[in-house]
Design a protein around this nucleic acid. Sequence first.
DNA 1: CTACGGCACAAACCTACGTATAGCTCGCAC
DNA 2: GTGCGAGCTATACGTAGGTTTGTGCCGTAG
Lengths: 221, 221
Amino acid sequence: MTDHEKQPQASAGDPVVLIVDDDPSMRRALTNLFQSVGLKVEAFSSAAEIMEAKPPAVPSCLVLDIRLPGLSGLDLQADLAKANIHTPIIFITGHGDIPMTVRAMKSGAVDFLTKPVRDQDMLDAVQAAIERDRKRRDAEKSISGVRSRFEGLTPRERDVLSLVASGLMNKQVAAELGLAEITVKIYRGQIMRKMGAKSLADLVRMTDALGIPRNRGHLQT
Amino acid sequence: MTDHEKQPQASAGDPVVLIVDDDPSMRRALTNLFQSVGLKVEAFSSAAEIMEAKPPAVPSCLVLDIRLPGLSGLDLQADLAKANIHTPIIFITGHGDIPMTVRAMKSGAVDFLTKPVRDQDMLDAVQAAIERDRKRRDAEKSISGVRSRFEGLTPRERDVLSLVASGLMNKQVAAELGLAEITVKIYRGQIMRKMGAKSLADLVRMTDALGIPRNRGHLQT
DNA sequence: CTACGGCACAAACCTACGTATAGCTCGCAC
DNA sequence: GTGCGAGCTATACGTAGGTTTGTGCCGTAG
């Protein structure tokens, strides 16, 4: 084995900072700044340009000038949200106003910096943004496996799963679905195997993570 | 208080808007605005003044001028957070800047409006803020009962609960705690009764809501 | 001292859970 | 048709979960 180290899956690879700014000197300055602390950088000059690039597969963040040729930074933010891309965004502005700031922050921006930007502020913001993205990706990944296994269930198995995870006994599930108790038991076993759940507690947490509706749920005062 | 309206309050009472502004004319204008749409209002002229009042027990929100005598609006926001009071805050400012806005929004403000404030903007913001507070209160209430019941558990019962909710079988819990299986069964029954859980699924969701650490949890890819 | 609550265990008993083996129908793809 | 998978059920058996009744120890509050 040349490579006995199993490092990569800890939490994805090296993070990358995506810069979108139409000012070449600004791009260069930011690139140098981020590279000086060991961050990878990709720079773009317009919103359209970055929309064509594929979303990065590693923890990343966007540094956007709010004033861009074509789509503005805020428009790009909205488009990314619509495209279900949740890369954290840091805005930079030369002459921004408060309503603009509020709109950006309400839409989930991590920060909104005014020119001239202090290097340390920018690095702090990027640090926080990348950390946020890393957490989001970890959470995403942890349920993607569960979700794909759920897709592998038959419709009937999903019915049973829903009721079992609600806390019903096998006989109650059977009555609810018009089945024999033994049938429910067998489905239940298949569900546990297919979902890779080692206990009912596992199964309950999986269904909650997937947002499966509870047909008989409760948690009152 | 002649209150002829008999409103059957579905969940919690009438919401109230708390205004903090040192300008009497502003207080009057805001009070009139909110009352015109049927909202209750309490007005204060300084941060110190509102800190002495007791936190409201109904869905509410704060409308703060950012520039106040004594503690500023941002300071008040920080103090409230430290005091574990999470009433949503809407800021108003005459001459705010962007860093101030960012700081307020990052600290959880729902909105940040600039003078002159358009009535509709203010009402929309208050509406959103109150709705947020209502949701938070509902969530809070739904676990407060669970939490108090958990407090009623003996230390040993909590040990067992933790392991049972992790998905261990009774015999495994017994081995882990150095007990006989029968003892675990008895504790388990007491836990179910004390917590008011009608099923293991209930119990698992309660422990998760309480943030009880899992001693043998898993949910990997 | 006595009473009480937490902790721990045991025998007996019942219910619920889970699997294996086996058999059936139906619809669909080859 | 033949095969296949989903769906459904049954008998049988073993394991896990859960309650009841009763016993005992320990420490502390009254």
